[in-house]
Amino acid sequence: MDTRSELQISGIGRSQGGSYSHVRTDGMAKINGNTECISLDSNGTLTIEGALTSETVSVNGTATVEGGLKTNRMVLDGMVSLKEHVVCQELLTVNGRLSVGRGLDGERVEIFGSLKTRDDVQCELLSVHGGFSIDGLLNAGLIDVKMNMPCKAQEIGGESITVRRLKKFSVLEQFVPALSAKLQAHTIEGDDIYLEHTEAEIVRGNDVIIGKGCRIGRVEYKNQLTQDEDSHIGAAYQI
């Protein structure tokens, strides 16, 4: 029998960490200490000064977790900052902005907005509508990116990698090139690769399509390479 109690904070409140069944906060809440619960539901501002383990997490507004986070399903609407390693075993949906101080391990990751991590990202499916900045290796089975913000990763690896730019062309990026929606990576490796508006030093894959607006230093492909006229490839080798 589960004897854990619920935690509910409305308005401005502060609580200790610990083990709870359900945690619900509305308004400004602060929990100091490691927290373990079945579900966490937050509206407004939430700060957890410790690690969080919860089966489901849902955030509306802003949230900060100082410690590591482990969960199965997580929906984040708003601005969330997670300072340590994040594990999300089933589905992570972000509408807004998520920044992770370390790495992210997931299964399905859907980003509408932006994702920023300081370390590697690993998941089976990553779909991004917006932008990302990954300071390490992005390793995912299926990567589908629709950019309308700058995207950056040191390395990208996976089975199928698709990077497109959304049609909308903002006036701003014509004047400020740093803000234009393009992907920058050192190495991109995968089986099927489709790239648009990408700057990379090395692209390696079986079937590679280099679409418009790309600048690639070196392409190594096994079966097929298709190049758009409006792109630049330094050197291409069939391996």
């Binding site: 690993q122 998941c123 995912a140 089975g141 690896g157 996976g158 490796e189 995968g190 079986n206 391996i239």
Partner: peptide, 19 residues
Amino acid sequence: KELLELTGISYGQLYRWKR
């Protein structure tokens, strides 16, 4: 690169096994 040539696996497989 040499590893993939030698073993005949693809980048996708290597990354999947790493994951």
